[in-house]
């Protein structure tokens, strides 16, 4: 970024930004189809919101990302750490262990020669090692959630190798016990600004899981992500998980650079993966 130095405002020119973007690695979701519609995976320096009905796999995807961000660089990953902010108590550590095992077995399958490698890389590929690099915060009220997000700035300064922050879910406490909706909107928009700032400053991905709610529009009830219209502006990318027949699908609802598209994915014992049947349509642009 040599040319950046000549810039009087400390700004970055668009050409540099492009090469910067191209050199960035993305965090894989575990499903190739899903990565495709996301432009390679979850992007660092961006805030991505993922919403869906109960049981469709939001938490599963969240845990998967917390594991996948740690795939070592020599295996094509980011080799970073994860922060997991759990507001709902749905983080099941036994499941995290399973997903870590699934991720490791996939790595070994792709890189069969790595069995003979030095013991140091074998040590890296232990589920315990993956679990040790997930920093977990259990949040029990919205005030704690605000506190945690404020504190993250300091925490990330001390833990510079964190590449993803997952908040599961951003909604829960704000829906449970916040009465003044106008105040809620202001507090939430301040939070989202802070998260965006963190994402840029520490070059990491912020993933917000959101619940769905029903909304009355155009004469019928429809599902929509919770927290209202003004909140929907606050995320760079928005992905909605839903059921399409018997398959789980992800729908890219909003992205500054990618077309609206949907793709199937599956939740298996090993974690989030591609749907294996051959007769479905691949990435479909709607």
């Amino acid at each position: 970024m040599g040319s950046g130095e000549n810039n009087p405002l400390g700004a970055q020119n668009a050409w540099d930004m492009l090469s910067d973007e191209q050199s960035q690695k993305h965090i894989t979701t575990g499903s190739g189809d899903l990565n495709n519609i996301l432009g390679g995976g979850i992007h660092c320096k961006e805030v991505t919101e993922i919403g869906g009905v109960p049981g469709v796999g939001k938490t599963q995807l969240g845990i998967q990302l917390a594991i996948n961000v740690q795939i070592p660089m020599q295996y094509g990953g980011l080799g970073g750490k994860a922060v997991y902010v759990d507001t709902e108590g749905s983080f099941m550590v036994e499941r995290v262990y399973q997903i870590a095992e699934g991720c490791i077995s996939d790595i070994l399958e792709h890189f069969p020669h790595s069995h003979e490698k030095s013991s140091s890389s074998n040590k890296q590929l232990q589920p315990e090692h993956f679990l040790a690099d997930i920093y977990y915060f259990r949040i029990c009220s919205y005030a704690e959630q605000i506190a945690a997000i404020n504190y993250l700035e300091k925490f990330l300064g001390e833990h510079k190798d964190v590449r993803i922050v997952i908040i599961d879910s951003v909604t829960f406490h704000f829906r449970q016990d916040f009465d003044d909706l106008a105040l809620r909107t202001r507090v939430l928009s301040e939070l989202s600004l802070k998260l965006m700032k963190i994402a840029k400053a520490y070059n990491l991905a912020v993933v917000l899981l959101n619940q769905v709610t029903t909304k009355f529009t155009e004469g019928s009830f429809q599902l929509t992500l919770a927290l209202g219209d003004s909140w929907s502006h606050s995320c760079t990318n928005r992905v909605i998980l839903y059921w399409n027949g018997n398959e789980r699908y992800a729908y890219l609802d909003k992205s500054p650079s990618l077309p609206v598209a949907s793709a199937p994915y599956a939740v298996t014992g090993k974690g989030v993966r591609d749907v294996v049947s051959s007769n479905h349509k691949r990435v479909r642009v709607t």
Partner: peptide
């Protein structure tokens, strides 16, 4: 006010 952090391990 932020609750303490633990690793998943």
């Amino acid at each position: 006010a932020c609750p303490p952090c633990q690793t998943a391990l």
